[in-house]
Computed example of a mutant assay.
Amino acid sequence: MTAVDRSDVHTPEQGGSPLTTKPRAPRAGAGQADRSAPSFGPDSDPLDVIRWALKAHPDVLMPSAFNLNGVVLLDLAVRAGYRGEVVFVDTGYHFPETLQTQGRLAARYPELTFVTLNAGAHPEDGQTPHDLYATDADACCAVRKVAPLQAYLRRKAPSALLNARSRDQAATRADIPFVEAGARVKVNPLAHWTRERLEAYARDHDLPVNPLYWDGFLSVGCWTCTRAVRPGEDARAGRWAGKGKTECGLWAGGNAL
């Protein structure tokens, strides 16, 4: 696998922009719970939530970036009977460790279909200006991450998405319900799981967690816009630090799934 060149990413000591721990942007309003779903409570077993989703939405599919939450959800979903697609968007800026984690997961779960959108993308592929991530992170995410997944979902037209968000990841996610209503139902089986519980599950089941996680990258996105998390910060504080941005646009904003 070709290594990703990170030579143009500079720390403050190297003359780059200083990292920030300023407060995150205000969170969005709470997701609208789907009233047609069962009355799941904080102690509901994610397996029960997934089994309900598989029955209520046989066409459900799972987008994933293979972070800790996503790896745990993959294992739980397989245990619950999920045999569908796991859809990953290659932005061209992923860490090699992320792509290697995808490969390990695909080998571990052959019963799943791993789909890579935008496969082979790279920083000089012409999709965006080479420095767009620095000048307009929202636009970069919109082109390289949100648009490919939205186009795929328009073709597949699933009635529901199985995703790994949890409330303690960030203030923007603090109120998500197990099942969100919308154009597509969003099923969040891990909504009430803490990071400690996720880590324990991953250890107990010997899951192939992205090695960057154990180096403090509690939420791993593109290498251009991700740093390690500092003590006391939320799990997503290392994403787009200092850019006034908290979400890529998949789960919040005008083009949200």
Rank of each mutant, 00 (worst) to 15 (best):
D34E: 14
A160C: 03
A147H: 10
A147C: 10
T194P: 10
L198P: 09
R79M: 14
A183M: 06
L153H: 07
G244K: 07
A256E: 09
F66H: 13
L212Q: 11
T20I: 10
E199I: 15
K186A: 03
R236C: 01
F178K: 01
N118L: 03
G126D: 03
A160H: 01
L54N: 02
L257S: 07
P42Y: 13
T2V: 14
G103K: 09
Y109V: 06
P189K: 02
P211D: 09
P23E: 01
V86E: 10
F114K: 07
A252R: 04
A107T: 05
T98K: 05
P123A: 11
A3L: 13
E111D: 12
K245H: 05
R24Y: 11
V87P: 10
Q127Y: 04
A25W: 09
G103F: 06
H94A: 09
R236S: 01
A202S: 14
Q100V: 14
S36R: 13
D215G: 07
R203T: 15
A139H: 07
D234I: 00
D204T: 13
E196H: 14
G15M: 11
S7N: 13
Q150I: 03
N69P: 12
E247V: 01
Y201G: 11
L198M: 15
Y82I: 02
Y93I: 04
A33G: 08
Y82G: 06
S44Q: 11
L190G: 05
H205Y: 15
L19Q: 00
G238P: 00
R51G: 08
N163P: 00
C141Q: 01
T246N: 07
W214Q: 12
E124K: 13
G29I: 02
V179C: 07
G70P: 11
C140P: 09
R79T: 15
W214D: 15
V89I: 05
T128N: 05
H94K: 10
S39I: 14
G253V: 02
W52K: 01
P208L: 04
F114L: 05
S17D: 13
L76F: 07
E199H: 02
